[in-house]
Design a protein around this nucleic acid. Structure first.
Lengths: 350, 350
DNA sequence: TCCGTCACCGCAATCGTTTGCGGCGGCAGC
DNA sequence: GCTGCCGCCGCAAACGATTGCGGTGACGGA
């Protein structure tokens, strides 16, 4: 292990070092320095202060290996994501890490690329590291991973995507899809297409369902072939949009369940010689920072990604403390921009 | 600690468990299961196989806390980045993690937001976790952090940004800037502007220097006021570009040391009623995936971000093994697109 | 037959922390 | 003055893995 802050190049201070200097037993030092207040009460205020001073002077930092060995808890959380280069997951992860480190936990993250085998492999690697719990950002409806982990008693919280009987923190994707649908209905689009994302992700499924529900309630039905699955990236959105734009009658608006897919849609619209916002309206989902910066600013369902991460971590920490975990669906809002209402600068329903 | 893979809900198997079942001493099990081949040779092939079989059957996973306590090494690397939501750093981090996990190491990452205090705080938190070494993705020329860590003997590698006397893995930013400059010179731009990034980052400084050198060698001098500092994000690029476009004579091309700044530049160009690529050429740096997908595809200096991360991790692992660390500058290439040569689909010098 | 060599394995200490238990005072109550 | 209580602290046993050292047995050579 690397030399620590205690001094230039000597071995880091331990409880024993502090104890010797303070003229007390290591157990007393351990108690005096405990974060747990009830434990700290086991030592008098005077000696506690004395020990604290010496610990500071020596730059004492508890060795997590020793603590983990004794307590059986590593103070680390594992996080699985499809990929960290996706800004949505990266933002969620930042929220997770913020909440975790505020509680004295560290997080270890791993990419799975939405690959079924890799999910298991990476989860096992994290568990081999003895993480205290897991946050899954890549739950798939066609995977047994979450169920397996739950059966093994691993403290577990899903984020971003949901699964039937598991604790999860997501946006209210049904509502988000509905917001998008109501918006397009409201501005007069009667023939619309949906870029629905991967069929194994609850996000795409529910956003699509909410969107279609809004249309149904308006008495408009969206034929099946106007809703196509897709990858979540730019290329996926582009391919799906090309398919939709080939339909007759051509849709006058397209809802993509993900901003990057929406960017792909915009590209396909341009390539077809049509104008985004004028000829074809486009709505995305998540409202990533880039959405407002595009040449034609993208109307998007705003999702509180950072908050989702924070809540997910808080929920998992609660479970580790023995409190029951409850699923939450954070409310999305709609940010209307030029891709559906040309001339709009930026306004947001909130 | 969470129940492990060994069984449904019983405590995870330990060396002792395996030893008892195998009828040997724990030390023999430890040796038989060691990743180090020379250690493994201390036990006969027969017993090793027997032990291995039982370990597999029991799903034995070594407890890292025990190993870390004894060996003094945690098999964890700490990584500091400005922010993980920056796809450049996220990609570099993926490279780091790929190399680290292939070598049996885990990585712990922390955001510093390029904040001087936070850099120290987060580094200390990582060291308190007893990481075996540190990779700094947020080195600043005006910070003493790297020097402090080096003085304390912490194994250290910089990535993305350089610092004079430290081991680093970066792209050859001087060359990258030069490629951008030579390209613009070559297509006839004589009056150019530079969005130079933050003055504390070697990336912006060297990319700018390389760019200016290319112009000097062409006998063209870029006046000081045509090179402005900026933040690295879209808004920063936009603000800087507004300033540049206000100059007379107006530059006919702008080089931004970062793709997101370049996107901001493109926005400012449009807002000024000019056409990107036609009236004002724009060049970015890094060649993030989005660059090729923009409505006007962005010419950009391609940087091997994933490889940088992988090399940085490999270098740090080498240092941990006692090998001397050597700095590397990976060669960038230029991807020419429509933002400088209208009509270009996509071609890349490689 | 005896000794030396070597391969294989066990012994036990050690890393640093936490925590149940017990001891030792001092103080109050009777 | 004795007993009981309680606040404060020390003792020692864990937790799980690694490793220097020494022991045991087999085997070969003389």
């Amino acid at each position: 292990m690397a030399p620590q802050s205690g001094g230039s190049l000597r071995p880091p201070a331990t409880l024993a070092t502090v104890a010797r200097r303070a003229g007390v037993h290591v157990s007393t030092v351990s108690r005096a320095l405990s974060p747990d207040e009830t434990v700290r009460r086991g030592v008098s205020a005077a000696t506690a202060a004395h020990i604290q001073a010496i610990a500071d002077e020596l730059g004492y930092q508890p060795n997590p290996a020793g603590a983990a060995l004794r307590t059986g808890r590593s103070q680390m959380l594992g996080v699985l994501v499809p990929r960290l280069t996706d800004i949505v997951l990266a933002t969620i992860y930042e929220g997770i890490d913020a909440a975790a480190s505020a509680a004295g936990y560290h997080t270890v993250v791993a990419n799975t690329g939405d690959d079924l085998d890799l999910q298991h492999t990476r989860a096992d690697a994290l568990l081999a590291r003895r993480v205290d719990g897991l946050i899954l950002g890549d739950a798939r409806t066609d995977s047994t991973l979450a169920a397996d982990l739950a059966r093994r008693g691993i403290p577990l919280v899903l984020v971003s995507r949901r699964l039937p009987r598991r604790v999860s923190v997501t946006t209210d994707d049904l509502l988000g899809g509905r917001l998008a649908g109501e918006h397009l209905v409201g501005i007069g689009h009667r023939r619309v297409g949906v870029v629905a994302g991967e069929r194994y992700a609850s996000t795409g499924l529910e956003r699509t369902a909410g969107f279609l529900a809004a249309y149904e309630e308006a008495g408009l039905v969206v034929p099946d072939r106007y809703a196509v699955t897709s990858r979540f990236d730019v290329a996926g959105g582009r391919a799906a949009a090309e398919q939709l734009l080939g339909l007759r009658p051509r849709p006058t608006a397209i809802f993509a369940v993900n901003d990057f897919a929406a960017i792909g849609v915009m590209g396909a619209v341009r390539d077809a010689g049509l104008r985004v916002g004028e000829d074809v309206a486009v709505v995305g989902y998540n409202d990533v920072p880039l959405a407002a910066e595009l040449p034609v600013a993208l109307t998007s369902v705003h999702a509180p990604m950072f908050d989702m991460g924070r809540e997910a971590a808080a929920t998992l920490l609660g479970i580790l403390d023995g409190r029951p975990g409850r699923s939450r669906r954070l409310p999305p809002t709609l940010a209307v921009r030029a891709s559906t209402v040309p001339g709009t600068q930026d306004r947001s329903t909130a």
